[in-house]
Amino acid sequence: MRQGFSFSHFGMFVHDISALESFYTGLLDFTVTDRGQLPGPQGPRDLVFLSRNPDEHHQLVLISGRPKELEFNPINQISLKADSLETLCLMYRTLKSKGLQNVSPITHGNAVSIYVPDPEGNRLELYFDLPWYVSQPMAVPVDLEDGATLMKRLEEHARELPGFRPRSQWREEMAKKMGVDSVKSSL
């Protein structure tokens, strides 16, 4: 890792803080670590702090005050990394069983993702990195129903794409480009 900074958390304005709190705690197992109010130029703002990691006070902060009518949502995606492909496939089945709309499983060649909007239309990416790299951007729909053949299908597809190589090789290239130690940090 580069010295100095690492990504820690994300905060977003919301208009229905209760609905978003329920979504992130219920579906994605975040825990409320704190809540309160802060004064602001347009009046007090409610804040809810959420985390999935006891070492991080918050990974997501929900803040009241988002206008109900926005021409454009500036949040492209909020990404959460799965610990396994099985976890990702289980979440896909969970999302489908809850009847959530616009659930889109995609392969990027180097990762497999599920895109789903939260209750306010912020796009979530739930993903798992694959053990190889392909040139980006790349996105095509993928069938997550047949878990027995999924990894084989993902690799066969990726091998046909530009830039295919082991993720470890790509990582070494990026470490050199970034001027950092090529040994993977445990941090």
Rank of each mutant, 00 (worst) to 15 (best):
Q3A: 15
G4A: 14
S8W: 03
S8C: 10
F10D: 01
M12Q: 05
F13K: 06
H15R: 07
I17M: 07
A19M: 05
L20D: 00
E21N: 06
S22T: 08
F23L: 01
F23G: 00
Y24A: 00
G26S: 05
L27H: 00
L28E: 00
L28I: 06
T31F: 03
D34H: 03
D34G: 06
R35G: 04
G36K: 08
G36L: 02
L38W: 13
L38M: 10
P39N: 12
P41T: 13
Q42F: 15
G43P: 07
P44Q: 14
R45V: 08
D46V: 10
D46A: 12
L47I: 11
V48G: 02
V48W: 02
L50Q: 05
S51Q: 04
S51A: 06
R52N: 05
R52D: 02
N53Y: 03
P54Y: 09
P54M: 08
D55E: 10
D55K: 09
E56H: 14
H57A: 04
L60V: 13
G65S: 12
R66M: 14
K68M: 15
E69A: 15
E69P: 13
L70G: 14
E71R: 14
P74S: 13
I75S: 08
I78E: 02
I78W: 08
S79P: 06
S79V: 01
S79F: 01
A82H: 02
A82E: 05
R93W: 09
T94V: 11
T94S: 09
T94M: 12
L95F: 11
K98P: 11
K98C: 15
G99W: 04
G99D: 10
L100H: 15
N102K: 14
V103P: 01
V103M: 06
S104H: 11
P105A: 09
T107S: 03
G109W: 12
G109S: 09
G109E: 07
N110A: 11
N110I: 07
V112P: 03
Y115C: 01
L126Y: 12
F128K: 06
F128L: 02
D129H: 02
D129L: 06
L130F: 06
L130P: 07
P131S: 09
P131E: 11
W132A: 06
W132C: 11
Y133G: 04
Y133A: 03
V134E: 10
S135R: 09
S135I: 12
P137N: 13
M138T: 14
M138R: 13
A139V: 08
P141T: 09
V142H: 05
E145G: 03
G147W: 01
L150P: 02
M151S: 00
K152A: 09
E155L: 00
E155H: 06
E156K: 04
H157K: 09
R159Y: 05
R159A: 07
E160I: 12
E160H: 15
L161W: 14
G163Y: 12
S168W: 08
R171V: 15
E172G: 11
E173S: 12
M174V: 15
A175F: 13
K177M: 15
K177F: 15
M178D: 08
M178I: 12
V180R: 07
V183A: 12
S185H: 06
S185E: 09
S186A: 09
S186M: 12
L187K: 02
